[in-house]
């Protein structure tokens, strides 16, 4: 009941996952199954939110030096949630506009800035990794620099743009295609192991 039934369910639903794609008579059933998975998966959000809440509540209870920031997370989460939910039931209202503005002028700039910040960190990481100690590291360095130049090429430097296009079209495609085929075989093998109940780590420990 505690382990056998979940394994049986994984096997049955694994077969359904295959059948809805390859058996023409069952293709109409695919959307129902995708809806099922969306519905079931949506409840997992409660676990994520509770885990985040527990983490920050612990910080607040222990009067951690950064507990102010835990309040920031809580207040923003609740604020976003409340205005979003009220806005859902009152379309075109102030709440929905506020939710839209919070998304466009708080979430989007934070997201973009966070990823832009990575440019500086991958530069310092690249400096350490790309030092031309071997011929292979030199190739890595040269390819990286050529593509960077190629992305902003102008005038006589347009040659870098052509080299970049070729690098992306031939060696990069070849390398990534080799990797993709390997990844694909890995996914298929692991999925088969899960469906057959050989791989069980997703059930967690315990009885």
């Amino acid at each position: 009941m505690k382990r056998t039934l979940p394994l049986a369910l994984a096997f049955i639903f694994g077969l359904i996952g295959i059948a809805v794609q390859i058996v023409p008579a069952l293709k109409g059933f695919l959307n129902t199954m995708l809806d099922w998975m969306a519905i079931i998966g949506s409840f997992a959000l409660a676990l994520g939110v509770s885990s985040l809440t527990r983490h920050h509540m612990t910080k607040i209870r222990r009067k951690h030096k950064d507990m102010f920031f835990s309040y920031v997370t809580f207040v923003t989460m609740l604020f976003m949630m409340i205005i979003g939910l009220i806005g859902y039931f009152q379309p075109e209202s102030l709440y929905q506009r506020l939710f839209g503005n919070m998304y466009n002028y708080v979430r989007v700039p934070l997201d973009a800035s966070m990823f832009a910040l990575l440019a500086f960190f991958i530069t310092s990481a690249a400096y350490r990794a790309f030092r031309a100690r071997t011929w292979l590291a030199t190739v890595l360095l040269v390819a990286g620099v050529v593509v960077m130049m190629g992305r902003v090429a102008f005038g006589p430097f347009m040659i870098f743009n052509d080299i970049t296009a070729w690098l992306m079209k031939v060696p990069t495609t070849a390398a990534m295609r080799g990797l993709t085929i390997g990844i694909g075989l890995g996914i298929v093998a692991t999925s088969i192991k899960i469906v057959l109940g050989i791989e069980r780590s997703y059930l967690g420990g315990g009885e």
């Binding site: 979940p6 996952g17 059948a19 998975m37 079931i40 075989l185 996914i187 298929v188 469906v195």
Partner: peptide
């Protein structure tokens, strides 16, 4: 909670066998 987990993992594993075989291989 293992029931919803195994249903989700099982379905997506079966689903991935076909899609991964098609797109990645």
């Amino acid at each position: 909670s293992r029931y919803p987990i195994s249903i989700t993992v099982g379905f997506w594993s079966g689903y991935a066998i076909v899609t991964s075989f098609k797109t990645n291989i």
